[in-house]
């Protein structure tokens, strides 16, 4: 079991004929993902990674039902591609690209809420249900990182996710689903909106949260724990604890302003709510060991 995505999910890839789109679609299929169609305007009738390509999302959906769409489009076209998917009635969308203009992102978030759709991204590696299916780019063949298990992982980061997940595996655990909500200032789905899915998933025993400086998403998670929306154990690791104020540390989302969004504030909020907070990546594994009796 897993959340959002499994082997039965019928996946569309928008922007399938690009270099990255084709390359990773093949990996997704090899991993077990049920990719049923692709979209690239002007290329209907062709096949990419063995998948039929259509001009538009609606035309693809007329050919075969679609549950979820993965967007391999450049940031300037992300808004339009999302609107096209939502108009075709698709309720799960993953957007990978880094660099979506802010005003586009605001409208995308609003549109996703209005459509009642779960739109994940941008600026993410995507989502993976371990051993079953993935939407995005994950080097699943690295056994040091991608091992099936019972820990739900949600993250704002890419490389740091590999670092932390490797520590989860080193301690003898594995992941159920890994949800990369992405590093943008306007994540289209927020941590606290993923938590209820992990709460309901019988195959997730605990959640590892990989957060960062900036924004208020970690504080929202603390609130969800306090309100008993999420009652399983949660271990958090947050990068940027010693970041200087007012500096943009990489991600557009990772900026500290006006005394808000510091990692220290977030760590206090999470600890007060009852979450376990790791100071260093290595401690994520030992904290999991301290709360969970069985590993697999």
């Amino acid at each position: 079991m897993s959340i959002i995505l499994d082997q039965s999910t019928r996946v569309l890839v928008q922007g399938i004929t690009g270099k990255e789109g084709k390359f990773w679609t093949k990996h997704m299929i090899d991993y077990g993902t049920n990719v049923v169609a692709g979209v690239t305007p002007g290329k209907e009738g062709q096949y990419a990674a063995g998948v039929p390509v259509f001009h538009t999302v609606k035309r693809a959906a007329r050919n075969a039902p679609i549950d979820a769409s993965l967007l391999f489009v450049p940031p300037r076209f992300a808004k339009e591609a999302l609107f096209e998917a939502l108009e075709a009635g698709i309720k799960k969308v993953v957007i990978l690209c880094d660099g979506i203009p802010l005003h586009d992102a605001i409208q995308m978030r609003k549109a996703a809420i209005s459509a009642g759709a779960m739109v994940i991204g941008g600026n993410t590696s995507g989502i993976i249900s371990m051993g079953q299916a993935m939407m995005g780019f994950f080097p699943y063949w690295l056994e040091r990182v991608y091992r099936p298990g019972r820990i739900g992982i949600m993250t704002r980061s890419g490389s740091l996710t590999n670092e932390i997940t490797a520590e989860v595996v080193r301690a003898g655990f594995g992941a159920s689903s890994l949800i990369g909500i992405g590093g943008d200032p306007v994540p289209l789905t927020r941590f606290a909106e993923v938590l209820p899915l992990f709460q309901e998933d019988p195959n997730t025993d605990a959640v590892v949260l990989i957060g960062e400086l900036g924004g208020t998403m970690e504080e929202e998670v603390a609130e969800a724990i306090e309100n008993n929306v999420f009652t399983k154990p949660l271990v958090a690791f947050l990068g940027g604890r010693t970041a200087p104020k007012g500096k943009k540390m990489g991600h557009a989302g990772a900026i500290i302003t006006a005394g808000k969004g510091t990692v220290k504030d977030k760590m206090i909020a999470l600890k007060n709510a009852g979450a376990l907070v790791a100071e260093r990546p290595r401690q994520v594994g030992t904290l999991l060991e301290s709360i969970l009796a069985s590993k697999i």
Binding site: T155, R156, S157, G158, S159, L160, T161, E163, G183, I210, E212, L213, F237, G239, G240, R241, T242, A243, M249, G250, H251, A254, E279, R280, P281
Partner: peptide, 17 residues
């Protein structure tokens, strides 16, 4: 000289720690 904002921030913390 690191790749990924989250990892870079984490290495930054570790160096300081």
């Amino acid at each position: 000289m690191c790749a990924g904002a989250g990892l870079t921030n984490t290495v930054f913390d570790l160096v300081n720690d």
